[in-house]
Nucleic acid binder design. Structure first.
Length: 422
DNA sequence: TCTGGGGTCCTAGGACCC
DNA sequence: TCTGGGGTCCTAGGACCC
């Protein structure tokens, strides 16, 4: 058996932990720059606020007081996520942190006589008690079915946050009405095709197809989903964190940037952030891509641009100095005067373990020195906060963002700790 | 006026090798 | 007119996830 513990409307729930007055009311959390809705309470969903919908389209709901909005507060969400994970760890030797709000739990070592329904309800209750976050715990023979089971918890309050779905007849009963687009791994494209072309609307319609049909339509990935629905586990449980194969830092700017120095300062900071992540996982990268783009929603195509440049390193590196130099050079090549840049980013690729780097024959970088400097830089930034020191080209002011509705960092900033009056 | 920020895997096709 | 057979590697693009 596998369990999936999925936090309900996670970002909204994090805000509600410290604002219990918002329980039962429509709440929306916005993306960076207060752009789009990225989390909605059930009440906000009922009012018609869509995932990813731009805020200006539902501004009337905010202004009339029908919806409460928050700017995203990722230090809060990250910390709350860690607390939920700690609580889950008490119930199983191994958990797989799948995303900020979802973890899988391997139950294969537990006695087959276990009452997993009771177990799931208990885990959910404990998460709520210890962290304040409502969590849906689905248990099933495969990860894909566990996902479905956890969705049932959200749909039916009578499950009290936990649901064990394992008997064939129960699974099939659920699949008969489960929307095809809600199956894990079947996205917008496939579900649109399945509905339009083949008149398939439910998970049952997919489940009852031949394996060979699924294979020809979707390839090996589809077959895995199909088998998982039939109770055959195909998706590995991964409790060790995998090193990233690609690391990207990009941001949309609050205002278009026209000044090359301003743009450089930002992109240089993105670079420093990305390379810090790279070192943190003990890797080096063989290439870096820099990209800049103008506002993609602008009609005036004469002034629009998406450009990117790839730099490859003869010897894979984790030196901010070396990578930043490449990024700054390519940025200079791409920048055009008179254009307003709305978004930019840095992508590190060809990532390998730092101790497996193959040196180039004519390598002339003093890697020892760079390594010592980077290590000192990282420890200072760890101790005194991000952006305490960095390379000269980089902005140390952070990114200017619109965050009009930001909540306090209740759990990660001494100045924001809630005060209890009694 | 205002539109997020990350990731992964699979496949097809081309280049190239013997 | 006829024009092998097998393989690997790389890349771009498409699909998905949260």
């Amino acid at each position: 058996m596998f369990a999936l513990a999925d936090c309900n409307n996670f970002f909204v729930s994090c805000e509600r932990v410290f604002r219990p007055d918002l329980e039962g009311r429509p709440v929306v959390v916005l993306s960076n720059n207060d752009g789009c809705a990225i989390a909605r309470s059930n009440e906000a969903k009922k009012l018609g606020v869509k995932m990813g919908q731009p805020m200006f389209e539902f501004r009337h709901l905010i202004e009339s007081g029908a919806v409460t909005v928050f700017s995203s507060n990722f230090s809060l969400y990250g910390d709350m996520s860690r607390r939920v994970q700690m609580t889950l760890s008490r119930f199983a030797p191994a958990i797989e942190v799948y995303s900020i709000d979802e973890s899988f739990i391997d139950l294969r070592g537990m006695s087959p006589d276990t009452d997993f329904d009771r177990w799931a309800k208990n885990v959910s209750r404990e998460c709520r008690r210890c962290t304040g976050i409502p969590v849906s715990v689905g248990v099933s023979p495969t990860k894909t079915l566990a996902k479905i089971a956890s969705k049932l918890c959200k749909q039916y309050p009578a499950t009290r946050g936990g649901c064990w779905m394992h008997r064939k007849q129960d699974v099939e009963k659920v699949l008969r009405t489960f929307p095809i687009e809600d199956i894990w791994g079947i996205g917008r494209r496939y579900s649109k095709r399945f509905k339009g072309y083949f008149g398939m609307n439910t998970a049952w319609d997919f489940y009852t197809r031949d394996e060979s049909w699924v294979s020809s339509e979707m390839g090996i990935g589809g077959v895995r989903i199909w088998k998982e629905l039939h109770g055959m586990p195909c998706i590995e449980f991964e409790d060790t964190e995998q090193a990233k194969k690609q690391i990207m830092i990009s941001r949309t700017f609050a205002k278009e940037i026209t000044d090359p120095d301003d743009l450089s300062a930002h992109v240089s900071m993105f670079c420093a952030m990305a390379v810090e992540k790279l070192r943190k996982q003990g890797s080096c990268c063989g290439s870096v891509t820099t990209f800049i783009t103008t506002n993609r929603f602008h009609k005036d195509s004469g002034r629009s641009q998406f450009e990117s440049r790839l730099t490859q390193f003869p010897t894979a590196t984790d030196s901010t100095i070396e990578i930043n130099a490449a990024v700054m050079r390519t940025l200079q090549e791409m920048f055009r005067k008179g254009y307003g840049y709305k978004r930019a980013g840095v992508v590190l690729g060809d990532i390998i373990q730092a101790d497996k780097v193959q040196m180039a024959f004519f390598d002339d970088v003093d890697r020892e020195r760079h390594a010592r400097l980077m290590s000192v830089m990282d420890s200072i930034n760890r101790r005194d906060g991000r952006n305490t020191i960095g390379v000269a080209s980089q902005s140390l002011d952070g990114i200017k963002m619109n965050r009009e509705h930001l909540s306090p960092c209740y759990t990660t900033d001494w100045n924001d700790i809630p005060v209890v009056h009694c």
